[in-house]
Design a protein around this nucleic acid. Structure first.
Length: 222
DNA sequence: AAATGATCATTA
DNA sequence: TAATGATCATTT
């Protein structure tokens, strides 16, 4: 068990320790069994990295390192540093959203400071042989914040107006709204177009690839 | 080939 | 059910 880091510097040291190592090595060190594949265990890599960085496991809607104000995200990239997947940020509040602003939203809080940990994610590389890259801290620039905030406001307005079912993943410049649930039969309450209560699939906020790619590029082209 | 919509495991 | 950790796999 790795104790939670007491400072940002400690966290970054833990992060340096795992850089360059394979998932097999890290699983062995953690005493965690290698996942056979990610198909039936999609969060396995993220949970392995959490263990090594001393993140407190849990399903609370807050940052991984709340005392440091830092959220942890692993991000799959290929050998050229290309981002392979969109990034889930958090689930979307869709029922009682009155009084909710970008500034007091969970997504704003989570994105205030992110420790990005790139992990080799090409399917052609066997899971145990994939290498963990060098993690780095990131905070949104003014421009990036503007993009996120305006997408968020547009999406949340549609939700408040009962137009959630008309939102597609194509909406938003950098932020997407997509289903986020165990399967299609999971339902939660939302407002319909006439203000009535309807049942919809739960949604989550995702960062589009182009946005996370720019973050990765910014880091590795310095 | 890229992207959208769907899905898997686990905890509380 | 709702939150976390995400990637899968069919459609475009």
């Amino acid at each position: 068990m790795i104790p939670p880091p007491k400072s940002t510097a400690e966290l970054l040291t833990l992060c340096e320790n795992i850089a360059g190592h394979s998932l097999r090595e890290l699983a062995d060190l953690a005493g965690i069994k290698m996942a056979k594949d990610l198909r039936t265990n999609k969060g396995w890599v993220g949970q392995l990295i959490e263990w090594h960085l001393g993140a407190t496991a849990g399903s609370k809607p807050e940052q991984d390192f709340k005392h440091l104000g830092i959220e942890l995200k692993t991000i799959p990239i290929d050998q050229f540093g290309k981002v392979l997947e969109t990034t889930f940020v958090c689930s979307t509040p869709i029922f009682n959203t009155t009084g909710l602003t970008w500034e007091n939203s969970n997504i704003c809080n989570k994105l205030s400071q992110v420790l990005w940990v790139p992990v080799q994610g090409e399917r052609s590389v066997p899971l145990p042989e994939r290498i963990v890259g060098s993690g780095f801290l990131w905070s949104a620039s003014e421009y990036q914040t503007h993009l996120l905030k305006s997408d968020w406001q547009e999406l949340m307005e549609k939700i408040a107006l009962g137009k959630i079912e008309s939102i597609s993943a194509r909406d938003g410049e950098v932020l997407q709204l997509r289903p986020k649930a165990a399967n299609g039969s999971i339902l939660t309450e939302a407002y319909g177009e006439d203000g009535e209560i309807i049942k919809v699939r739960p949604r989550g906020f995702y960062l589009k690839k182009a946005f996370t790619q720019s973050i990765i590029n910014q880091q590795f082209e310095i």
